[in-house]
Each structure stands twice: as structure tokens, then as C-alpha cells.
Computed example of a mutant assay.
Amino acid sequence: MVNIKHLKAFIALATELHFTRAAERVCLTQPALSSLIQQLEQDFGIQLVRRHTRQVELTPAGEEFRDTAEKLVADFEQAIYDVKTYKSIKRGRLDIAVLPSVCSSLLPRVLKRFNSDYPDIRLNIQDCAGQEIINALNEKRIDFGICYAQSDKEVEALTLIKDAMVVVCSDTHTLAKEKSVKWAQLANQPVIAMNKGTTIRTLIDSTALAQDMKLDIILEPMQMTSAFAYAEAGLGVAVLPSSGVPARMSPGLRAIELTHPVVERNISLLRRRGVALSPAGNILKQYLMEAVKGAE
């Protein structure tokens, strides 16, 4: 059966057109090289080289096969290199999906470090709602996700951070001077809540229902940046997760603890149960854990 040794022997002979020099080129004895060429011809059922007393020449079939053999060997060696560099995290790709609030807070500094250390790893980051992240994970479209979820029989969840719901409002708003705001105080306020289908909105709606209160939701942005802009313009108060509040928020905004009840959530790194992360995925996971620990 033809293998890589046969191909390398044939390429050496096609290059040197001399059995002894070709054998030296691939570190074989001359009889061993001759045997490989004979096996190759027998397997193909066609003569590839013509043997003369002092020289060798390729037959038309040998000339045609030379390009194919060189390509096969090059592809084989490239495949070996790719596997080795993948293991050493010198190349590869990571596909992850992350909640928008994490994209705007924790993730940027982690990605900056990762890109600096592993510039040849291609990162594909999707920011999307929690259910979309879980769907992408179950459909094997991403390596891991970061969102609000718990472990189940399909998904393993590793808690990264715990955040709480806060009120964000303009610094001229009547609530701006409060040290904390109770949910009941939102009953008579125009509220900016994230779009339906997001984990933030689900928490807001379920908490309001549990408190037997109806919120006057006037705006439902898809992006947290829009929620901040609406709040700063004085259109209402935004109910957002603390993880999405930047360390350097606009001076025209205030973030205030939301209490009675305090609504917390665990934001976790999710991966398919029983499926190991790639070497690059493990490094990014490590960087995330270190960033979270350093922020405590």
C-alpha cells in the first residue's frame, strides 16, 4: 500500500535522477530506495522511471505523477505542522458568544491580553442574548459561551461573576441622590428595560411580577449603550446589570443599587458537557478566571 515513504522516495529520485544520490537524500540505502520505487510501480501497475546504467529518467506517467506526489507530501507535512502548532497554541480559531453586558465590561481587557500573547489565534466574538448563546452552544456553533445559565445534563456552567440589578439615571433625576432604590420606587417611573428575550429583561419582568407591580416600560433597546444614552437624556430610569456598568461612566449618569429585593444573577462560562476545550480555549478560560479574581 502506498504511503508517505514511497512518495518521498519517488520525489527524491525524480529530483536527483540517480538512485544513490536519491537514497542519500532521504537517508536510505540504495536497495531500500529501489524497493520502494518498485512497490510504487507495482501498486500503480505502471512504470514511473526508466533505469539505465548510469542514469534514470521519468516516464510520461512518472512526469505527470511527480506534481501530484509533491503536492501530497506538502499537504501531509502541512497537516502535521497544523496539528503541532494547534497544540502549542500558535494558530487556530475560537468561536465564543457572550452577553452584551460582559462584552462591554469584563471581556475587552481579557481579549487585549489574549491577543497580545497569542496573535495568531483568530477570535470570533458574538454578542447576543442568553437563549441565543445556549442555542449556539447546543448546535456546536461556538466553543463556549458566557451568559446567565445553570448547569444541566447538556451544559456545564462555571460561575465567573455574580452581579446585581441597578438603576441608572441622569444626574439630574429625582433618584440620583439616593444611596439605594427600592423596586417599589420604580412603580411611578418611566422605565428603560432591555428588549424582550434578553436575560436582563426576563429578570426584570419576573421580579416585577413577584412584587405584584406593573412597570411603565417606555423604551426597550437592544444595546446597553442605547439604554445609557436614553437614561442620560432624562427619558427614564434604566434597569441594568451591574456587570454592564463601565468603571468610567459618563459624568451625567448615576448607577444606584436596586434593593427590596436585591436581584442577583450568576454569569457563567458555559461549555458542552463532556467536550474538552481546545488549548486556546483553555487559555482564554484561564485569563477570564484571573481577570475575575483580580477584580474582587
Rank of each mutant, 00 (worst) to 15 (best):
Q42M: 09
I46V: 15
C27T: 11
D75W: 05
D67Y: 11
D75C: 02
T53W: 01
L72G: 00
I80N: 11
S34A: 12
I46W: 04
T59V: 07
E64F: 13
Q78L: 09
R51H: 06
R54V: 07
A79F: 09
A69Y: 04
A32H: 13
F76C: 04
G45T: 01
I37V: 06
E57S: 12
K71E: 06
S35F: 14
Q78R: 13
D67N: 08
D67K: 15
P31V: 01
D43P: 10
Q39W: 00
R66H: 14
Y81V: 07
Q42H: 09
T29V: 00
I80P: 04
Y81Q: 12
S34F: 10
Q42T: 08
I37Q: 03
E63S: 07
G62F: 03
F44V: 14
T68Y: 12
E41Y: 04
T68S: 12
D67F: 12
E70T: 13
D43N: 15
Q47E: 08
Q42D: 11
F44A: 15
V83N: 08
A79W: 10
Y86D: 01
V56P: 03
C27W: 08
L58R: 00
E57G: 07
T68R: 13
V56L: 10
K71M: 07
Q30C: 11
K71C: 03
V73I: 06
E41K: 06
L58F: 02
A32N: 12
Q55C: 14
V56W: 05
R25K: 14
P60M: 06
T59H: 01
P60D: 01
S34L: 08
S35V: 14
R54H: 04
L48H: 03
R25P: 03
D75F: 04
F44Y: 15
V73G: 01
I80W: 04
A74N: 03
F44D: 12
Q38S: 13
Q39K: 06
L72E: 02
P60F: 06
T68Q: 12
D43E: 15
E77A: 07
I46T: 13
F76P: 04
T53S: 13
I37L: 03
E57K: 07
Q55W: 10
A74M: 01
Q30V: 12
A61N: 02
R50M: 11
Q39I: 00
A79D: 11
G62R: 03
H52D: 05
D75R: 08
R51C: 01
A32E: 08
E64Y: 11
Y86T: 09
F76L: 04
L33M: 11
F44T: 12
R50C: 09
R54D: 02
T53P: 08
Q30M: 11
V56G: 06
P31Q: 03
V83R: 14
A79E: 15
L48D: 00
Y81K: 14
V49L: 10
D75I: 05
D43R: 15
F76W: 11
L40G: 08
Y86W: 07
R25W: 03
R25N: 11
L36E: 06
A69E: 01
H52P: 03
L48W: 02
V26R: 00
C27S: 13
D67E: 11
L72V: 10
E41P: 07
A74H: 02
A79M: 14
Q38D: 09
E70K: 13
E70S: 10
Y81N: 08
A69V: 05
S35T: 15
R25D: 07
Q39E: 06
E57Q: 06
P31M: 06
I37C: 02
I80G: 05
T29N: 05
D43W: 15
S34Q: 14
L72C: 07
